[in-house]
Design a protein around this nucleic acid. Structure first.
Lengths: 130, 130
DNA sequence: TGAATTCCTACCAAATCGGTAGGAATTGGC
DNA sequence: GCCAATTCCTACCGATTTGGTAGGAATTCA
């Protein structure tokens, strides 16, 4: 029940990209964040796969948002970065089980997703989140 | 960002205890849940430390709720079972940092706690959770 | 005293986390 | 065409966490 550093880094770099005009390379992001560019590459690949950032290779390449920051909801970002760990506990996910607690976990994860989907990258980069 | 099996087991055994009059031993709970009594002992020790169950040793001993089920909120249970992993990410917890994402994590964890504190053990054991 | 039980400590295998390393593929500029 | 800059791919690796197991000490009831 905690946020991985991968997710943390992911949101951090997104808020850098949100205020940058040109593509930003992993090396430059390393300077901003202090996180190794090699590791950021991994994080950014995940964000690229879900079409939140677009990556261009080669000289003058780098990463940029593939949509406006207000059209990027934190839900999709966090779900991707936490990979399959955002699902409800196995027994519930695999539909069969109906242990008494399953409704609690469902309620919890629905709530988590609702909160995250209610926040856009724009709000984060501008600090206007409530 | 997932629920550990320890937490899952914890809520499961609590809902057993909620419908039992007499103290229930770890061995009996093993029969109900399929989880080894040795491991359940650990889980129950945590719940005992936060005064949600009371344990009595010796013959005819076992575990029972130390309060009415409607007075046990899932928030305290889950926070205890997940130990320190329910805190906001380190950089935020240690007050100094104000990376742009910190407000998001704070909002998220506040929301999680609010959801969990809004559900009582009674609702779980009776299945009346919304 | 003996059986049933929790409590305490130590240990352990497997998975996950948080990276590192090396190089292939691609692209732009000269 | 070549070189430098960049992402992409694959493999590896140490530390930590997870999910237990094992053995026995302490306690309690009959």
């Amino acid at each position: 029940m905690k946020i991985s550093s991968k997710t943390h880094y992911g949101v951090q770099v997104l808020s850098f990209l949100a205020v940058s005009e040109k593509p930003v390379s992993a090396k430059e992001l390393e300077k901003c964040t202090g996180v190794s560019s090699k590791y950021l590459e991994k994080v950014l690949k995940i964000l690229s796969d879900i079409n939140v950032v677009s990556a261009t290779r080669g000289a003058n390449g780098g990463y940029s948002l593939s949509r406006n920051a207000e059209q990027i909801r934190m839900g999709e970002v966090v779900r991707a970065l936490e990979e399959d760990n955002m699902e409800i506990i196995d027994c519930v996910a695999k539909s069969g089980c109906c242990c008494p607690s399953s409704k609690l976990w469902k309620k919890l994860f629905d709530g988590i997703n609702e909160i995250l989907d209610g926040v856009t990258l724009k709000e984060i980069s501008e600090g206007t989140i409530l």
